[in-house]
């Protein structure tokens, strides 16, 4: 459960959560993401290719992770969101804050 797929690509930390970030799984995601951001690159891409579902508990941990990354001089953005995930990000205004990209490469490029 606490396993969070991730890799470091060209100075960016790419987090790839799978299936769902809901109220019952958000804590595990938060703990894993937090540890990875602390020890790894601070430019964070959430690759949502394998993510079917996110609720406000998931939005909360994305925000927490983004704050952590930003405080350390980095940032966070999101790539490859499915229609459902996009809808939740859009209702919450998270699409505008973090940016949605069609590929991990485009997301990485957005850090400049």
């Amino acid at each position: 459960m606490t396993d969070l797929n991730h890799e470091v690509i060209g100075g960016s930390l790419v987090l790839k959560p799978s299936r769902r970030i809901d109220s019952s799984t958000s804590k595990a995601f938060e703990d894993a993401a937090s540890a990875l951001v602390e020890s790894g690159p601070k430019k964070v891409v959430i690759d949502a290719s394998d993510l079917d579902y996110i609720s406000s508990a998931g939005l909360r941990v994305i925000l927490t992770t983004a704050k952590k990354a930003k405080a350390a001089g980095g940032g966070l953005t999101i790539a490859c969101a499915s229609a459902n995930v996009k809808e939740v990000l859009s209702v919450s205004g998270f699409d505008a804050i973090f940016g949605l990209h069609d590929s991990v490469d485009a997301a990485r490029a957005s850090f400049g």
Binding site: Y53, S55, N84
Partner: peptide
């Protein structure tokens, strides 16, 4: 899953 988000929020 769209329906599930609503239930998730309310149960939470």
């Amino acid at each position: 899953l769209r329906f599930a988000v609503a239930l998730d929020e309310l149960i939470t």
